[in-house]
């Protein structure tokens, strides 16, 4: 860069500006991630104690915990994933194995990809219309189904991607031994893609365990301990939302604790999924 050619100098100046901008952008991104995690740890750990796990959500101005919301979140997520996982895996199998290259299959893949990033509040409205209004009450079932609708496209898509990685020679070898197609798929292809499919399910759990919008008018919330799937059930995201917007400092503190719990669970699931995916390659 010792050249005195003005054009070269200008080119290198431009390059330096772009480099600085690029490094700056990355630094900003990492800084924000650190700032959010720092605030979560700072505020969340400050409010964390045993009561959080043993006591239910308190009335305003008094001390309490999140036990009912933690239970509710786990239940809703588990039931949601129990509904979505088999359907998602089967749908992914169909689209990847049976409908390979067909026009209808391509269209279904396309629709699934669009559903994958569709606004989750819309799903809440939809489930409210088909499962809350007809039964006349908010219910944990409705919440779980809403979460299943969010998880389904995620599992469907990862299953498609993972099955595509299974070498064709495996399928052919199994078929040549006289195995019927479903046995080839279940005992050979699924087995070969097992950790990949599991990764997809884990990512889907991570995705739905923090979803708030679809639960607002499906599962709603519940101040009390409830294990009845037919009734409104408390859950962490909705509690965080309600408590954070409240003027009571006790509630706000619990909102941060809930946020810390959810985020750590999600980051843990993400890391688990990543290490699984890394092992399967």
């Amino acid at each position: 860069m010792t050249t005195h050619n003005p054009i070269t100098r200008r080119r290198h100046r431009r390059n330096r500006v772009a480099m600085v901008f690029s490094i700056f952008a990355t630094a900003v991104g990492l800084f924000i991630l650190a700032a959010i995690l720092w605030e979560l740890l700072w505020q969340g750990l400050g409010g964390l104690n045993m009561k959080v796990f043993t006591e239910i959500t308190p009335p305003p101005g008094s001390d309490g915990g999140l036990s009912n919301a933690i239970y509710g979140s786990i239940m809703l997520t588990l039931v949601g994933i129990a509904i979505a996982a088999p359907i998602g895996i089967l749908a992914g199998t169909y689209l990847s194995e049976y409908a390979r290259g067909s026009k209808i299959g391509e269209a279904a893949k396309f629709i699934n990809d669009v559903l994958l990033s569709a606004p989750s509040i819309i799903v809440g409205l939809f489930i409210n219309a088909i499962l809350v209004v007809p039964f006349g009450t908010f219910s944990a079932w409705a919440g779980a189904v809403a979460l299943a609708v969010i998880a389904l496209p995620v599992i469907n898509r990862t299953t498609q991607d993972m099955l595509a990685l299974v070498p064709n020679t495996l399928r052919e070898a199994a078929a040549a031994l006289g195995a019927p197609r479903w046995k080839v798929l279940v005992f050979i292809v699924w087995r070969a893609a097992k950790s990949g499919i599991l990764t997809g399910v884990l990512l889907a759990i991570a995705r739905i365990s923090g979803e708030t919008a679809p639960l607002l008018f499906t599962s709603f919330g519940n101040q009390f301990w409830s294990t009845d799937m037919g009734k409104p059930m408390a859950n962490l995201p909705v509690v965080i939302y309600q408590f954070a917007m409240s003027p009571y400092s006790d509630w706000q503190r619990l909102a941060w604790v809930g946020a810390l719990l959810i985020t750590s669970a999600i980051l843990f699931l993400n890391i688990l999924a990543r290490s699984l995916a890394a092992r399967s390659r």
Partner: peptide, 9 residues
């Protein structure tokens, strides 16, 4: 991966 409610909070 961080859920949107955390960003809101």
């Amino acid at each position: 991966g961080i859920p949107s409610i955390i960003y809101g909070l």
